[in-house]
Computed example of a mutant assay.
Amino acid sequence: MTEVVRLDAVSKVYGKGQNAVAALREVSAGIPRGSFTAVMGPSGSGKSTFLHCAAGLDVPSSGSVRLGGTELAGMSETALTELRRGRVGFVFQAFNLVSSLTVLENITLPLRLSGEKADAAWLAEIVRRVGLDGRTGHLPAQLSGGQQQRVAIARALVVRPEVVFGDEPTGALDTMTARDVLVLLREVVSALGQTVVMVTHDPVAASYADTVLFLADGRIADSMTAPTADKVAERMTRLGAWKR
């Protein structure tokens, strides 16, 4: 399988001198196209930094990050913004919807920011897949938390990105609603061939992925294919300082 994201020997250090903190240490990993990858680890293990570097939201201190065939190192902030807008989708714990825009306007916002028109057939397809038929004229305040996250997922998909990054996308949802969102993300991968990378602290959420990457102390400590919630939870108890 081809890799849509590739990190090679990526390190990220915040601060200088005695105040320097290494968030990532020589991390190498590939994300296969059309896969669902969960990233887990103790607090401070580097999960969010991994996602931010992989998505072009942050610049590594050293190492290489490639999206498709594009090396991100050395790109200007303007070029990175254009790359993220056209080739990457984001879903965060906070839904980040614009309260004054309708569901449809929120979904198509990335296209309008790029000066592009929506593909009507694709827009209708993703609205249907995320279960928002009949609600496209609503404002975010008129939706439940789960429905708002569905809007965020549709917004991430509208540009047909090469990869969707999720940072704790179910963290603000109750367990039933979280399950619905995870089923949707799983379907997006299985039915549409989308690539999803999700940072999570929840072993149940991670069990929906094809592969789990475990981070500890800024390094990849392990990986697991065909994860179950029990196996993930058990592995999490033996990471970094927790294993001592």
Rank of each mutant, 00 (worst) to 15 (best):
M75H: 10
A79S: 09
G86S: 11
G69L: 04
L113I: 05
L104E: 07
M75E: 13
A94F: 15
E77P: 08
G74P: 14
L123D: 04
V91N: 02
S62K: 15
Q93S: 04
L111Y: 05
N106Y: 00
L97W: 00
G46E: 08
V91C: 07
F90E: 12
E82M: 11
V59S: 02
L109N: 02
S100M: 07
N106L: 03
R87Y: 05
L113Q: 04
R112W: 05
S100Q: 07
A118H: 14
S48L: 10
L67V: 08
T78Y: 11
E116C: 11
R84P: 12
E116R: 15
L67F: 01
A79W: 09
R84C: 03
S99V: 03
A118G: 13
R84G: 03
A54S: 12
L80M: 11
V65L: 02
E116A: 14
V59H: 09
T70D: 01
L67P: 02
R87T: 09
E71G: 00
G86C: 08
L72M: 12
T108Q: 04
T108M: 01
A54Y: 00
I107Y: 02
L72Y: 00
E105D: 12
M75Y: 09
S45C: 14
L123N: 07
S76N: 10
Q93A: 03
P60L: 06
L101Q: 13
L80W: 04
G74E: 05
T108I: 04
A54K: 01
S61L: 00
D119A: 09
S61D: 05
R66P: 03
P60M: 10
N96H: 13
F90C: 13
G46W: 07
S43G: 12
F95S: 05
E105Q: 11
I107W: 01
I107H: 04
R87D: 06
S114P: 07
F95R: 04
S76K: 10
I107F: 08
G115T: 08
